[in-house]
Amino acid sequence: MSSPADLKAAQDKLAEFLAAARHAVAFTGAGISTECGIPDFRSPGGLWTQNKPIPFDLFLAHRAARNEAWRRKFAMDAAFGGAVPGRGHRALAWLLAQGRLHGIITQNIDGLHQASGVPDDALVELHGNTTYATCLDCAQRYELDWVRTRFEAAGGHAPDCTACGGAVKTATVSFGQAMPEREMARAAALTQACDLFIVIGSSLVVYPAAGFPLRAKRQGARLVILNREPTDLDAVADLVVRAEIGDVLAPFAAADAAPA
């Protein structure tokens, strides 16, 4: 836990970096959403300690796996579906609106950046979005209420696409599923152009997404890492802050509260 003096010093340094930057980019992970009541993946009690992830090939091959994936999805929605953007989300949305941030790359799938006011053209969702579903064969979009109604009516059996009969899945990237080419290209372009890369709430262990901070650093950008736990890139970062994300970013959420 950082002291108030340490916290203020970190906020001042981040404000200094933002003021000097011409093209700042944020990179967010699960840690920015824990304040909103959504647990992360690897910490004790995290989502992966409760349920082993269902690989993509298993989801495709077995209806039982698809049934279980949707059962978990609706159980999680019951627990976390009411989450609203936290202080970190609101701060990034404000910095973006003010032109002090030029884009957000996120590993998150919870839709809270959009809910905070971040437009789609400023957001790169590397791992997709769990707030809607798509057919894996024809890409038909389905809203979750549609899936839930049919799932429950069928006694817990996942529905198939009404257009082509394909498997319907949340619009997320599962283990073993190819990363979205368009989003990877957008993230690479933002990284290449930036002179300040701010990592927020990511353990930086999931690749290829975690390769972007190092790429930014190697091409000359300043690297800031805001995360409660150490990461493998701390040693090369220009600023490392191990504190609660909401506490650090709260003063950046409005002009009259921003650090001097």
Rank of each mutant, 00 (worst) to 15 (best):
V205K: 09
R186V: 03
G128Y: 07
L226F: 03
D195P: 00
A163R: 11
Y132R: 11
R150W: 08
L204K: 05
V199P: 00
V224L: 08
A178L: 13
F151G: 01
L226V: 14
F197M: 06
V173G: 10
M184P: 07
N129A: 02
A209G: 04
E152L: 09
M179P: 00
A189V: 12
T130R: 09
R228I: 02
L204F: 08
M184H: 09
C164K: 05
A153F: 03
D121M: 04
T191E: 01
I200D: 02
Q140A: 14
A171V: 01
G176Q: 12
T149L: 10
E152Q: 10
F197P: 00
Y132V: 05
C194G: 04
D120F: 06
D234L: 06
L223I: 15
E229A: 14
R150Q: 12
V206Q: 05
S202L: 01
P230E: 06
K217A: 14
K217R: 13
M179S: 01
A158W: 03
Q219F: 14
D160E: 12
V173Y: 04
D137Q: 13
H157E: 15
T149F: 08
D160F: 12
A193T: 15
T130P: 02
D160M: 11
A221K: 00
E152N: 09
D232Q: 05
A163I: 15
D160V: 07
A163G: 06
R150M: 09
G201H: 10
D120K: 10
D195H: 00
D160I: 12
L190A: 01
L126D: 01
T172F: 09
E125G: 07
L123C: 11
L136D: 00
K217T: 11
R148L: 02
G211T: 11
F175N: 04
R141N: 11
F151Q: 00
E229V: 12
R215M: 15
A235Y: 08
V224Y: 03
P180K: 14
T231K: 09
Q219R: 14
G211V: 10
I225T: 08
D234P: 02
L214K: 05
S202W: 02
R182N: 13
L214N: 05
A235T: 05
C135K: 07
R150V: 08
E183T: 14
H157S: 15
S203H: 06
K169P: 01
K217L: 09
G156C: 10
G156D: 06
T149I: 07
Q177R: 12
V205F: 11
F197D: 03
H127T: 11
C164I: 09
V168F: 00
S203T: 03
Q219D: 12
A154T: 04
V199I: 06
Q192K: 15
A210R: 09
K217Q: 07
V236W: 02
V205Q: 12
P213F: 03
P213M: 10
D234T: 07
A193F: 03
Y132S: 04
L223A: 14
V236Q: 03
L233M: 11
D120I: 05
W146A: 04
